Amino acid sequence: MDANPTLDQLQVFLAVAETGSFSAAARALNRAQSVVSYTISNLEAQLEVPLFERNGARQPKLTDAGNAMLTDARRIVADLQVMRARAKSIKQGLEAELSLAISVMVPSESVVTALRGFRERFPTVALSLNVGELGMVMDTVASGKADIGIGGAILKQDDSVIAEKIGHSFMLPVAAADHPLGRIERPLTLADVREEVQLVVTDASGLTKGRDFNVLSYKTWRVSDIATKHQLIKGGLGWGGLPAALVRKDIMKGRLVALKLDAYEQGEYPIYALRRASNPPGPAASWIVDTFRKRLSACPSHADFTAMLELEAGKGLPAAAE
């Protein structure tokens, strides 16, 4: 007789594989460990292949067959989520409320324009907005606290979250015009920045715990948000990376200097629209994603942004240290 594993068996199998143990899977599923072990044994009997190597080891290890079946199980569970989402979308009308999580890397002008249009088009839909740093966007979407996320930090594999690229952004190292680094009229080296205070944002989501990005100085001040970091840098209290869209006007007006620092990674990175696979977008959510896509896909590249600053510098406005 052909094997006919149940959805519950596949979900238990995925839980054990992803948590690394039967006990952890039992806690995650709120079941007894004996039930989890029994379910896996039944699934192995149906498939007629061992999924885990036990051999007295404290932690179960996937067999070759288990690794192969893991891919199939993920696809089947994901397909079912899509089916459920489609059914929900068919019967779904206009949302009563929409919860958004937006990264600080999204240009504020785009946010204001999109939300102004949203208010005019969907006046009856209540809006909840959460703006934050780094892993916050994915964290709030994955946990169900936000319906839609607009951000760029995909810091962990999560099959329950669908990510669609809708634009790009990049960070720019800057300092106040009267800061010691801002007064150096040549490309900067690591030795130039090592002893200067670098302002760094701490990720409240915990997804980047133990990981630092572009931290080059020995001295760091850690702050909770980009807005505070921006103000402290403008006040001459340190240097650091800020979203290019956020600092463009400050650079053009001479309040900040864009630092030419090759050691600072300034590559463009994608901005995604995120949602849970089990939560299909309604009319309002679909509209907001499309609106952000139209605006963010037109954002200048790093090369275009640099050329823009050089053009402004040619008009007599201070731009970057050379």
Rank of each mutant, 00 (worst) to 15 (best):
G56N: 06
M83Y: 12
R58I: 10
K91H: 11
E18T: 11
V49C: 03
Q92T: 13
Y38A: 14
T19S: 14
L80N: 15
M83I: 14
G66N: 03
L43F: 03
E53H: 15
A57T: 10
R58F: 04
V49H: 07
D79M: 15
A87M: 11
G56Q: 03
L70Q: 02
R74L: 00
T39M: 05
Q46Y: 09
A73Y: 00
R54W: 05
T39G: 02
R86H: 09
P50C: 06
S89C: 07
F52C: 04
T63E: 05
R27G: 09
Q33N: 12
A28N: 13
G56I: 02
A45F: 10
P60K: 08
A65W: 04
N55M: 09
A25F: 04
G66D: 03
M83K: 11
P60T: 06
A32D: 11
R74G: 04
N67L: 10
V16G: 08
N30I: 06
N67M: 07
E18K: 13
G66I: 00
Q92I: 09
G66A: 10
A78W: 01
Q46L: 10
G56M: 04
R27A: 12
A78R: 07
L80W: 14
D64A: 14
T71L: 03
M69Y: 05
N30G: 10
V36D: 02
P50G: 08
A68V: 08
V36M: 07
D64Q: 12
L43D: 01
T19V: 07
K61C: 06
V77A: 05
F22K: 01
